[in-house]
């Protein structure tokens, strides 16, 4: 019964059908099976947030989700949202504020920040800090990350695309 399970997951808009070991978590599935290396494995016990991806629109910890659990789901990774341009404004703001150094936490940081800006388009600096507090960055002092999220909040507000909550 520990056999591989046929799993169909739509990743970044492409349906992938793979036999996967039940024990394989979503990060290893994305990285090892699909070659999507942008999702980083930082702790594998659900603390650091580097492996944040979206399942059916919600951010999740990739290391606390089995690939087989995502069967039938829609998964988006940093590669997907980069290719589509969905978070280009946020990525730009991260560069402009120098909100990253080594970049290892950045994909998870970006997806986490984007989720906040979509659910709370008027998030305060304090709310941003709270929301981002599940994502660990060892290089920056978080200050620039908060700056970047704030500036994107303003750009989006001006552009009138506050967005809907992810339900």
């Amino acid at each position: 019964m520990t056999d591989k399970v046929l799993t169909r997951i739509t990743v970044n808009g492409v349906l992938h059908e793979r036999w996967v070991e039940p024990r394989q978590h979503l990060v290893d599935y994305l990285r090892d099976e699909l070659g999507l290396k942008g999702t980083r494995s930082g702790c594998e016990h659900g603390v650091c947030g580097a492996c944040t991806v979206r399942i059916d629109g919600d951010i999740v910890r990739g290391c606390l989700t089995l690939a087989v659990q995502a069967d039938g789901a829609r998964v988006e990774t940093i590669e997907g949202v980069s290719d589509s341009g969905e978070i280009a404004d946020l990525q730009h703001a991260f560069l402009e504020s120098n909100a990253l150094q080594c970049g290892f936490c950045t994909p998870g940081m970006l997806l986490t920040a984007d989720a906040l800006l979509k659910s709370e388009p008027a998030a305060s600096r304090e709310q941003i800090r709270e929301h981002m507090s599940g994502n660990y960055c060892r290089c920056t002092g978080y200050h620039a990350i908060v700056d970047a999220v704030e500036s994107t909040r303003e750009t989006r507000r001006l552009a009138g695309c506050g967005g809907d909550r992810h339900e």
Binding site: G46, G49, T52, D58, I59, V60, R61, L64, T65, T112, A115, L116, E130, H131, S133, G134, N135
Partner: peptide
């Protein structure tokens, strides 16, 4: 609920 872990955890 705001005390409960972090957004990505609360989503699952």
């Amino acid at each position: 609920v705001p005390f409960l872990a972090h957004a990505a955890i609360r989503n699952r």
